[in-house]
Design a protein around this nucleic acid. Sequence first.
DNA 1: TACCATTCATAGACCGGTCTACACGTGTGG
DNA 2: CCACACGTGTAGACCGGTCTATGAATGGTA
Lengths: 350, 350
Amino acid sequence: MVAPERRRRVTISDVAKHAGVSKAAVSKVIRNDYGVSDAMRDRVQRAIDELGYRPQSAARALRGRAFTIGVLLQHIGIPFYAEIVTGLVDELAESEYQAIMIQGGTRDKTEKRAIDALIDRQVDGILMIAPLAARTHLEQVAREIPTLVLGRHDRSPAYDSIVDDDRTGSELVMEHLIGLGHRRIGHITFDKEHGQAADRTPHIRAETYERVMRDHGLAGEIAVAATSYTEEGGYRGAQELLSRSPRPTAIFAGSDEAALGVLAALHEAGLSVPGDVSVAGYDNTKLAAHPNIALTTVNQDGVVMGRTAGRLLLERIEGRTSAAHFSVIPSLVVRGSTASPRPCPADTGT
Amino acid sequence: MVAPERRRRVTISDVAKHAGVSKAAVSKVIRNDYGVSDAMRDRVQRAIDELGYRPQSAARALRGRAFTIGVLLQHIGIPFYAEIVTGLVDELAESEYQAIMIQGGTRDKTEKRAIDALIDRQVDGILMIAPLAARTHLEQVAREIPTLVLGRHDRSPAYDSIVDDDRTGSELVMEHLIGLGHRRIGHITFDKEHGQAADRTPHIRAETYERVMRDHGLAGEIAVAATSYTEEGGYRGAQELLSRSPRPTAIFAGSDEAALGVLAALHEAGLSVPGDVSVAGYDNTKLAAHPNIALTTVNQDGVVMGRTAGRLLLERIEGRTSAAHFSVIPSLVVRGSTASPRPCPADTGT
DNA sequence: TACCATTCATAGACCGGTCTACACGTGTGG
DNA sequence: CCACACGTGTAGACCGGTCTATGAATGGTA
């Protein structure tokens, strides 16, 4: 059996020949360039339609643009990232640009490979969602390609950035919990070993947690478990916090995913939520709203962030050279996972 | 302020000049081609390392390969897809190939645009996860590019396919529920209007549901809500099923996501799970395991499917012309969301 | 009528790779 | 000693677009 002949693609030359004009003319029509008569435009457009021609991105990229925005994310399974991408794709839908996504994984090495892959594929702009790489590396990339970094607080004149105001968001959670009467509040953060510098989101959330605790005279109650922002990290972190005596009456997890792990650990330990322990997360993942979870959390509008990212990137590609920095104001979403702590005799006795 | 000079990339000519050899020689070394002496290889490799050269994918694509696998998925937020991608990326990690993902959305038009975008970007192979497109369109794509379709039952000699044995999986769920003593079992499937033909997963799950019901003499109890496989679809579907009188004692949702919606609807209606209604899903999403959800569901190993997909695609790219079709055997995971129905006086009275 | 500016279309270089065809030793067998 | 095969390296065409430089045609003005 012979493999079916792989049909040759329609090229710009085919269109030119079919319309009886030059390649350059066709190219101009495609790019909506200056200096094309109406008659020529119609004629070429008809040829394009008749042959079903689509320009080949790889060939365009060599000289001009690839009309591609590359998105770097650690893993496509992270729900909050999905919202960002939704926003980006929305924004790009009206343009000629297409978003492609690539997984960077959770290690520097794999992330670097992914970033290189995007650059090698000649994307016109890169959206990096919470990248691990050092700032100097990001700046180096930004020198080659318009870059937008989402979710990191280290601004740079070399690239645009969009970031949630993690300070405000964390304050909202903490004031809520303390307002409910909690004093022993634990926090779950991201392990410093995983390359979390002072400018990273987890650090700011943790720092704010500690500051608010101190501001309310609760310095002695500070309890931080440094694991990770995954469900598994939340699970381990909660086990660590619950082993303390007396145990905390509330846990502020640095992310919704971690909060899910906290809920799992509490369930396993036979503790009720919010009866025994209140739980709060961060991100307002779609899942947090599910009645079986009903997680109090911080809402940062991922879709809007994604849209903004798209707009800023297109601007950069069009030639803007000044850096833009957006900070999104989050809001608290109170659900069933937080309540006032049960009055407990042990509390007064201490 | 002047924008920083955009540094010109190192090209193959730079490497050739630096090593004092021809472009062709460098190209041969890169591609590990025949006819290169050890001395030449060392020399070129040193130049590559010294200059930090990486070949540009777009340029390679024009003549040879782009070393890129394109993945089409409806939306990156779908948890089961994340597992597939994990498997694919794993498999590709050892090769030179990179996976890029693109969102096709839930409409034919947007999906077509996404597929075209992958083709225009000269990917070497395409993995389509549960595509909406008509079979003829898939075959047309497959004629141009090695293609693997995952999650559809319409085999074709033109492309490889990997599919979960939805018949077996659905039987497992139904036998489980019936074995527990349920008779009024409802099902939530995907709306036919959304282009769901007989070869699609939702249709097979629904068909199997009906067949098993009939086989057990429960033809009269068949109740199907055709909404969608999303959480919102599950929610609406459950409302529809629960409005029947008497209401079903169990609901088999076609996907875990839909099952989440069912749980939400039950919660809202003040019904307990599994006390009042048992719920089962399909896919064994990570979330289904969470103790707050504890969903009985069908496990299909997404990671293995992804790995297999990667392997098959690479084989195709290497030249295999015969079609390969894999069917993955699923297994039932029983959790807390299913139990025997409460004995109810209304049952006997009917 | 001659000259110039403007508009429109084209030829051909170019991007950075791959790949084919060929040149140049070098050893081998007749 | 010549013909030939073989292993190694190179020149240059080529992929499918973009873009620059140039030419042809047209209209307006002195």
